[in-house]
Design a protein around this nucleic acid. Structure first.
Length: 154
DNA sequence: GCCAACGTTGGC
DNA sequence: GCCAACGTTGGC
């Protein structure tokens, strides 16, 4: 049974165009430093799960493409690298704290702006739209997934 | 740049 | 375990 996720990325760090241009059109999802989001990756994601690739903290926030989970969670390489912005001195290779997982492009879509998502009654239940939500990874229901696809097709 | 909302830290 | 202080997120 496929599951669905929304994953936020700042386009200045990793945009949908970066995913299009990546080797194998696949990027390791690194840098998650929130336990709830980590637990989604570590415990709940399965290869083949659908992903809404969302651009955040940018002039036009919204869904920018469709992707899917590939492979399985691994220790996030950036946590061990002191030169990396996401270095975590409290983590160790023996007991890694953070995980990454590969995300593979399905297709780039038109931008579905946050504004349009908020205006769509069928998306009112989406976690990412909930007041105060800051999670960079949120589950998406099959109904929400289908509704997003319908909006993208317009 | 502002600021609301939320997560994390650390003293007690 | 409480909770104040602080840091981060992310839309606007």
């Amino acid at each position: 049974m496929p599951r669905y996720w929304l994953m936020k990325s700042e386009p200045s760090e990793a945009s949908i165009d970066d995913l299009v241009a990546a080797p194998g059109q696949t990027l390791p999802w690194t840098g998650v430093r929130n336990y709830q989001a980590r637990n989604f990756m570590r415990d709940d994601m399965r290869s083949g799960d659908g992903v809404l690739f969302y651009h955040s903290s940018c002039p036009e926030p919204g869904v920018a493409g469709l992707a899917r989970i590939a492979g399985k969670p691994e220790p996030d390489a950036t946590q061990f690298d002191p030169a990396n912005d996401y270095f975590d001195p409290k983590s160790s290779r023996d007991k890694p704290r953070w995980v990454q997982i590969d995300v593979a492009l399905t297709r780039k879509t038109r931008l579905l702006p946050l504004r349009e998502m908020r205006a769509a009654p069928e998306l009112a239940t989406m976690r990412v739209l909930a007041t105060g939500n800051r999670l960079s990874i949120t589950p998406v229901t099959p109904q929400e997934w289908r509704a997003v696809l319908r909006l993208l097709a317009r």
